[in-house]
């Protein structure tokens, strides 16, 4: 009951101003390995101005209004984002997206903890029924992290992407409220 929903051991979920977002996304996007692990849209270079305009429009959409920064607790560094989009409250369903743009914080548990925080938020504050995500077949590090957070493989979109001259699968994973509660819900319900 008295848990601070936004804070874990390593990171907290933060609110950021559009200018801060735009600068951070622009900085992170220069790392094309990051961009190609994150998104299926072609990697490209957007200015801070263009990014900010896009973001401000994007955040007007109520289905995309849950976008949080990932900030380290020790140095208060903005290292990434995590957000829910495509929320359908009638069905209790949402998609989640996460990216740790600062590669110094890869494979150290920061992203996993941010995902755990957003799942707790989705299930105990928004009271959703399930959370879905898509992850590229070549992003095995993320797949392992999602499995540890309780996500299960729900299927594979065959040969969904063409990159580096090769076709790649897109994996879909999901976690149900009951599954999350069984693992994390002691004392909650």
């Amino acid at each position: 009951m008295h848990t601070n929903l936004n804070t874990g051991q390593l990171v907290r979920l933060s609110a950021e101003e559009p200018q801060v977002w735009a600068e951070a996304f622009t900085r992170w996007s220069r790392d094309t390995e990051y961009i190609r692990l994150l998104d299926d849209a072609p990697a490209q270079a957007w200015s801070v101005t263009k990014r900010k305009q896009w973001l401000e429009k994007e955040l007007e959409d109520p289905e995309r209004s849950y976008l949080f920064g990932i900030r380290t607790l020790t140095e208060d560094q903005l290292i990434g984002f995590v957000g829910l989009d495509g929320i359908q409250h009638t069905h209790g369903d949402t998609w989640v997206g996460i990216g740790v743009g600062d590669r110094n914080y890869w494979s150290k548990g920061y992203g996993s903890e941010a995902m755990r925080l957003i799942l707790r938020y989705a299930f105990t504050e928004l009271n959703l029924h399930r959370v879905s995500l898509g992850v590229f077949a070549y992003n095995t590090r993320a797949q392992r992290a999602y499995e540890k957070c309780g996500f299960q493989l729900e299927g594979v979109i065959h040969q969904a992407f063409l990159r580096e001259g090769q076709r790649w699968d897109l994996l879909n994973m999901g976690i149900l409220r009951a599954e999350w509660l069984a693992q994390n819900g002691k004392g909650l319900e």
């Binding site: 369903d93 029924h129 879905s132 729900e154 299927g155 594979v156 979109i157 065959h158 879909n172």
Partner: peptide, 22 residues
């Protein structure tokens, strides 16, 4: 059938899967 998003729909008083075919 490529993906079965379990219990993604709440209709007719129960849960249903959303299917993604390819």
């Amino acid at each position: 059938e490529e993906i079965r998003r379990r219990e993604a729909l709440n209709r007719y008083g129960r849960r249903w899967d959303m299917l993604h075919l390819g």
